[in-house]
């Protein structure tokens, strides 16, 4: 009961809440881990699709996962040399 009263009048955060907050943060990062193999596979497939429609500059390509404390984003910057003109049957 004494313990309870000291807590009542102190502003100290419970260790339970600390545990929960820390876990949440660390899991946001853990869950975003993608293996380099998978990243590469995704990059190749994405380029495949884009190159069907545009001629792209592969050397200056950027393809990264970016994260801050709360969220994760897949950021791709794909420089385009020129658009392909859809000829007959070119989209098959």
């Amino acid at each position: 009961m004494f313990d309870f009263l000291t807590r009542l009048f102190s502003k100290e955060e419970s260790s339970r809440q600390r545990a929960k907050d820390r876990l949440r943060l660390v899991l946001v990062q853990d869950r975003a881990i993608i293996s380099p193999n998978l990243m590469e596979q995704m990059r190749v497939e994405l380029l495949d699709v884009v190159s069907k429609y545009m001629e792209i500059d592969e050397r200056n390509l950027e393809f990264n996962l970016e994260r801050d404390d709360e969220a994760i984003a897949l950021v791709a910057s794909i420089p385009i040399r020129r658009l392909k003109r859809p000829g007959p049957g070119s989209l098959q």
Binding site: F4, R7, S14, S15, R16, Q17, A19, K20, L23, R24
Partner: peptide, 16 residues
């Protein structure tokens, strides 16, 4: 310990 706020409770773990 849960009562004292010194351990995550069942609901906390389930939520996560």
């Amino acid at each position: 310990m849960i009562k004292r706020g010194d351990m995550m409770n069942i609901q906390d773990v389930r939520e996560i």
